[in-house]
Design a protein around this nucleic acid. Sequence first.
DNA 1: TTCCATGTTCCGCA
DNA 2: TTGCGGAACATGGA
Length: 262
Amino acid sequence: MPELPDVQIFKEYLDATALHQRVAEVLACQGSLLEDISCPALARRLTGNALTVTARHGKNLFARIGDGGYLVMHFGMTGFLRYFKDRDKSPEHTRLLLRLHNGYFLAYVCQRKLGRIGLADSLEDYAEKKQLGPDALELSRDPDAFVGRLQGHRGALKGLLMNQKVIAGFGNIYTDEVLFQAGLHPKRSAGELSDPQRRSLAATGRHVLETAIEHRVGEKGWPGNWLLPKRRKGQKCPRCGRAIERITVSGRAGYYCPGHQR
DNA sequence: TTCCATGTTCCGCA
DNA sequence: TTGCGGAACATGGA
């Protein structure tokens, strides 16, 4: 689930729940998910402080610790946050569990352990360290910058959009949706696109991301004319009725409509 | 049992 | 040297 729209919703969830609540105790910590810090060191850093401000860059969620640096959370393929009052309701696969001064708990849950938790002095430092490209939502709102960012690449469009070093935020799911709505084949070479086509791709990307966030489509179900609810081989394309096909592009499964994506 | 899955990283090839 | 694509990683459900 956790691509840019999902992480934006996690951010809003954290803002509405655990934000400003001081951490009383770190009750669980999976060391293998931590980047460049130990569990005891992380616990020392968090205990007695509150998460005060949140931010997001691509698929990374940042939460400022007191007035110091940031806790950085990446959710892998299966991560999410949960805020709850009864410790017995602690979700399975909780990898970091905070007890807060108001008696509630905040859990970072990650079944497949592909997520990461770390610290950063600033968003800029972290983005540089991870070589992250500009945030996809911000970049798509600036069509000229988006066009410039895509120039000079010649690989498959799907791989390009999923490359976090080029643009941070699109994953496998939403890349399929953007290319579907843009009418572009996932294997189409990025180098073949004209600048007007790149500009149009920015508008489609912006529309998909904003719609997904505003309507919480990941939770509530996707619009019927989107690819995502039909993202299985043999389903009918909601635009032209052709059968959806599955191909492998840049090492990932891609679903597309051979009728109108070229 | 085998395959597949919304994540990133690493390695080999051109 | 750089860009691209595939394999590997950890875990569990179909």
